[in-house]
Design a protein around this nucleic acid. Sequence first.
RNA 1: GCGAGGGUAGCCGAGCCAGGCCAAAGGCGGCGGGCUUAAGACCCGCUCCCAUAGGGGUCCCUGGGUUCAAAUCCCAGCCCUCGCACCA
Length: 981
Amino acid sequence: MDYDPQDIETRWRERWAESGRYEADPADAEATFITVPYPYPSGGMHIGHARTYTVPDVYARYRRLQGDNVLFPIAWHVTGTPIIGAVERLKKREQGQIETLQDAFGVTESEFSDLETPMGYARYFIEKGDASYKNGMRSLGLSIDWRREFTTNDDRYSKFITWQYESLRDRGLLQKGLHPVKYCTNENNPVTTHDLLEGEDAEFQEYTLIRFRHGERVVPMATLRPETVRGVTNAYINPNETYVYATVSQAGGDEDATATAGEGWLVSEDAVRKFQLQEREVEIQERFPGTEVVGETVTNPVTGEEVPVLPASFVDADNATGVVMSVPAHSPDDYVALQEAKADDERMREYGVDPADVETIKPVPILEIEGYGEIPARDAVETAGIDSTDDPELEDVTAELYQDEFHSGRLLDSYGEFAGEVISEVRDRFREHHTGEAFDRMHEFSEEVICRCGGEVEVAKQDTWFLDYGDEAWKAKARDAVGNLTCVPDNTREQYNHTIDWLDEWPCIRNYGLGTRLPWDDDFVIEPLSDSTIYMSYYTIAHLIDDVPVEELDRTFFDTLFHGAEAIENAEVVGVEEPREPDDRALELREEWEYWYPVDVRCSGNDLIQNHLTFFLFHHAELFDRSQWPEGITVMGMGLLEGESMSSSKGHVVLPGEAIEEFGADTVRFFLLNSAEPWQDYDWRGERVQNTRDQLERFWKRAVEVLEDDAPVEGNTAGEMSDEGPTVELTHIDRWLLSKLQTTVQETTAALEEFETRSASQAAFYKFEEQLKWYRRRADLDRPGAAWTLREVLRTRLRLLAPFIPFITNELHERLTGGPAEDAGWPESDPELASDRIEVREQLVEAVTEDIHDIVDVTGTDPEQIRLYVAPEWKREVFETVREVGTDVGAVMGTVMEEAHLREKGDVVNELVQDLVGFVRERDEAELAELAAVDEQSIYEDARAFLEREFDATVEVIRAADSDDETADDAIPFRPAIHLA
RNA sequence: GCGAGGGUAGCCGAGCCAGGCCAAAGGCGGCGGGCUUAAGACCCGCUCCCAUAGGGGUCCCUGGGUUCAAAUCCCAGCCCUCGCACCA
């Protein structure tokens, strides 16, 4: 009977589907609710996703075996733009998109037309294509209640989201305000990171604009280090670019912008659009080349000093305002640029700048910092040996000095009230202090950003609705929810708290995308992270709510459902003043919700702690009672494929379907769970998966041997295994294996309670294999007792392994007992079978076996006769003394020497005491007590047959006291002297 | 910088929270043997150094410390990985 996973797995899948095995409804048993993020079907399912969903499945299966009523549901997240973007790219037949679809996910050209609408595309990857999530999940044998599926684009789900956002608005947690967004200047639309060709890593940077003056005009210069304003020695402008003079006024409600109406600004032409996008009205008055300004002077708004404007081709007119200030004392860039300007008289003259004036420019230090001289930038540049602005190392040197100055630079006396303070402490206050007349601000990306359409992307400030995670009262509730939580692994707790601390305003709407419209403004759609914060509650009623007409799913309906009749009738729901009539249907559904909630465990990726998981806590803490707050979050690690990160677009993925076809679902599951704990990163390597497959095959073969060994065991034939205990005679070694089995049960259980799927499967599978190996060597297997023991061991292990490898274990368990493992209950460790005594005794046999092996190896002999000398009674007496007196050699000697018959043995006793003290130290009380009760002679005598087999020699066990052999003197308690001949 | 995690034998990787049974699980690779006409698969043994009697030496990033005892606890340092958002 060969191992044929395809055959076995197909049968069980069909059985589960037909019987609705994992459909869960409220019952008397304890409810356990396990959820995992609903997949986002913007592409197919790969092996990394497979693990994400298999980890909670193992836990779900474990809890079911423990007798819980377990709900493990799934749905589909389609909100937002990625699917729309994918469809657009497909329609344009973009090469990359076509390749991803065909190569990574096996979509055929004839199927393309099905994928050309967003929901068509989603449906394909939800359930149609070979790489669809549903196919993958069913193949893996996930124990999902499929009745509860929905998508986040469903009308009823949208009503649920509407309820949430109205509630949050009424609680004052949804606010309106301006926020920076990525905006494509070609399409005139906000864009998401997924829409970018370049600049995926770009960050929004808030620049301070230093409002230099040129006569009546303002010349704003952008900087990230406003405190260096007193160190400005000159400005740079690009002589080859176009600049403008424009009137600028503040528009909209941007409180940060301070430009007074109609003020005249001098900026690059490219900057105009940036300001317009950032809530300013800009009207160009005249255009002129940069050369026109070069050679002029501008006035520093803080110091009142006049500084020259020098020409510089390195100035990027498309970055910020196109005019930059130079702080050569603290910016290595500026320092080197100034050196170059000084060296290039001809160029200065060309632009009408007197080289003599340039020569007089001296770096002006504004701070002091340990480890650098008066002019830190000069030190940094000279140490690195940089003498050109083209030197690639200059960037690193600049970054390093900025870091150092930020964290340990202290402002000089010229800063008055700010003098002596560290930059990191003082920067914000200094900026605030000057904001208005001297400082303004603007946003800019940290690097160039290009849209997929080829258009340039700029920072735009847009009016938006945001979730106010900065609200202190809300933060406090969220922290409370963390306190309530079982975090796996435990060290993630701090990360949640940290995230709660720094989360601030979160813009929760977008201009376009799939999903739910903002209830009071149809132009906007609620973005994906914001519509998935409490959806787990929707699972509890998802299969029943279809019976309720959409239009009846109003505020009262969901308020009734989640807050109950009393709260509705008494107008206790925040934001609703009127007492209302509770909705009857909602009250029925409320029972479902109350049965399943709270979420027992949410399994999710560790990358989601910073947003989704913390949002999940925030929203539960606000919208639901404390008793419905999440009880646990288990966080999962990332996957690698052959040592490299998976990537659908590069085709570097393995599909579950392919892997299951090659290895079988049990192998795929076992590998994914066994190669690392859930929260650790794992690496899918084909070679190792094959290994796992081989191991399962071996397991299968051994199990079949046990099944087929129908040596007549009274009352224990197949189909009649029970918890009744042995009906045949068991020997010491049988009992030893059964005792080890109890430890295995305990370890596996403890590990699964902690979500340690790796430790659990290691204990139940690999570690126990080691015990079996010894048992097979040690035991006479042709006994009814051995057959019974092996069957009992198999029956228990099949149940322990059932959460991990459900197909093979159910199949074997059914063949063994008549029923599947998943219906047999989780094994409990039997105290009757767990025996320290037996294990301690067996350890002595293992030890002596190992010692004989050592001697044989070292000497290279092949003994024909082995003699074991058991330590004499007086040595046992000394052992007893050590046990009683403790591990203080002096004290033991004192006691021992009181005995005349020991005293006369002299030094030998001293040595023995030393040995025994070491021996006792390493063992605990219980073990020593068991040892004290041991009759060594009989133990080795009982193991004689085994030892003779093992070494192919005759074995004699002799009392050392009865022998003249000198070797016999070496015997110490629990370590017989060994003589080989 | 802030936050989190980590550095273990040729490689991968357990152990560390709860110090001793740790020359340190398991796997891979390597070596030897068995089975086989042969190869593969499978099975057995070995795989830090020394050693012809169960022994000794050195070892878990580096340097200190605590302890009878440290891979494990404490301190300092070096190096590495991940996240830092408005994106699923």
